[in-house]
Design a protein around this nucleic acid. Structure first.
Lengths: 340, 340
DNA sequence: CTGAAAGCGCTAACAG
DNA sequence: CTGTTAGCGCTTTCAG
């Protein structure tokens, strides 16, 4: 680290008035030119643009938003950025918002309800044009804030619950149930579940409940479970798989709450020489891109993340209220479920 | 007895005046209470808080920022969110900013200079308290904007260049050079490079240049190269490795521009039965968490991402100018470089 | 087509 | 401790 030299001049940011004076055009007309609003003669327009560019003027949106009561921001509240799933939803949102002048602003809750409340409060204090947030489980205070906000609110990813306003996602309960049916149909009988311990991961929990429901319908119950928290998911997948199979060696199917731990489990099983999928079947959830590079294709279910983002953005754009969209995830059996 | 229906959604958001009227306290004092500023008697404070909570008041930061000329936002501009590296830098930034009242706002450039310019322009229009951006290569217009902004600007990740203001990172050229030295010292002689084709990935390019410089010092040159763009990095790593070894079978070391393609290459080599690291050495870059779960530990270099984020945030917090911090990445030889 | 006046909702700076 | 008075930099509205 070097010594900081004398701090360079931090001048006052330029204002519309500076551009007005430099161009000899009234502030009002400068404003019109810069916003492309109303009719302005070509010569005037050019003089203004030249002055603005020459000075390096950047408009002050704070003042603009206050005066116009309009903000081009959409709040997007998600639990985490280290789980690839959320950047993908974001990509879908950006895709739609891209050329509309609206701009997503991301807030991260780290799967904590208290943080979610704070993050949403902060967001709303900037008076965004809409809110998109992951999940349907929120504190009473959060729901109240959202209801009062007076802008479109879209809860995404999960449709097992009652939304504040609009909702776009899949039913994770039904996803788990569909997986149970596929597992049973493939002839597996001793099923284990491996997942996150985080009590706030409602979607993983719902998938497990759906799985149990589906197994129950076939007269089966979960034979064993294994939970984890933190660390490298790929490494955890290995450890957990070793642990659950060590404890309950006769399991013939492992359902992972996400693809990353599933991938770890798959690598471990292949190294150990397990006969996958004959002796042992495996499945994850999410259809992450990484699966493309594994030695064998893990069974999974695509959660329609991009599409969810697109739909949610569309609702905000159209200023719709009370819309509910339930998408259907597709099962991708890959190479780790027996074919009958 | 019938429940009174919940209050209907409010069209006009509440203002300080509403809280003032509901509590019978002047707007100014309400403002003081809500900001925890100046002395206010306990009874008054309580009346205000009660009214604010009861009404569900959320302050309008747009007005607040305009009046106070202070914005609690720090712009963070990164190329991508799907590359884990950046969320990790972000985590370091958040860690420091967490309890300071400052809040990071993320912008994504997708490795495109034009988009970077737009994103930064948008950011600056909100008059943030600081800007942290990845890389030191920016368009002249971008640099001009940044210089005019009048707030701390910290360019991160890379120190091979001239910063607009402050700079925190590692020298990627030197990282490549250090890797070359390690490779040569381990006795490898026929080295191949595998990396991104993106012309905007300056850091990967600098590592390659550093590598070549280091090899040259030992009288060696790069024996072959292979580039890719898009798709699953893990899968690409496999394909590229197959391609380069198909073309130049006598290569004895592969240097990957990032760990994800390196991991793909490693998996492929192990499946093909290559003798790693004796017959063929491998190395990546970044030390991503995923490496923990692979069958063998890929050699890599830790790019100090979290620390970079922390330092950058610290500079913004302290409103410092012209600070330069060069961190030194540590080589982690793992299991894929011969030991001599 | 262009300009002048009146705020947007809040806070700095003073008075009391 | 509490209230009053001016704006913050821009846009809306309404005249020319």
């Amino acid at each position: 680290m070097t010594e900081p030299p004398p701090p360079p001049p931090r001048r006052r940011p330029l204002t519309l008035r500076d551009v007005s004076e430099a161009s000899g055009v009234s502030e009002m007309t400068v404003s019109r030119v810069l916003r492309n609003r109303g009719d302005v003669s070509e010569p005037t327009r050019r003089r203004v643009m030249d002055a603005a560019r020459r000075l390096g003027y950047v408009p002050n949106r704070i003042a603009g938003a206050l005066a116009s009561q309009r903000v081009n921001l959409v709040g997007v509240i998600i639990p985490s950025l280290s789980n690839m799933v959320f950047p993908e939803v974001l990509a879908g949102i950006s895709e739609v918002l891209e050329e509309t002048g609206l701009q997503p602003v991301v807030g991260v809750t780290r799967y904590a309800a208290a943080r979610e409340e704070t993050v949403i409060y902060e967001m709303l204090s900037w008076r965004p044009s809409g809110i998109i947030l992951a999940g349907v489980e929120h504190s009473a205070a959060t729901r109240a804030m959202l209801r009062q906000a007076g802008v479109p609110v879209v809860e995404i990813m999960d449709t097992d619950g009652v939304p504040v306003d609009s909702m776009v996602g899949i039913s994770h309960r039904r996803a788990g149930l569909a997986m149970a049916e596929a597992i049973v149909a493939a002839g597996y009988r001793r099923i284990g579940f491996l997942g996150t311990l985080m009590p706030e991961d409602h979607r993983a929990r719902k998938r497990m409940e759906g799985l149990e429901e589906g197994l129950a319908a076939a007269g089966l119950t979960l034979a064993d479970r294994e939970y984890y928290a933190g660390g490298s998911a790929l490494a955890k997948g290995r450890e957990m798989t070793a642990a659950i199979l060590g404890r309950t060696p006769d399991l013939d199917f492992l359902y992972y709450s996400n693809d990353m731990i599933g991938a770890g489990g798959l690598l471990w099983c292949l190294e150990q020489g397990f006969d996958v999928p004959e002796r042992l079947g495996l499945a994850g959830f999410n259809n992450i891109e990484l699966l493309d590079g594994l030695p064998r294709r893990l069974a999974t279910m695509d959660a329609c993340r991009r599409e969810i983002g697109r739909r949610a953005a569309g609702i905000v754009l159209a200023r719709q209220a009370g819309v509910v969209v339930e998408l259907t995830p597709t099962l991708q059996p890959g190479d780790t479920v027996r074919r009958r």
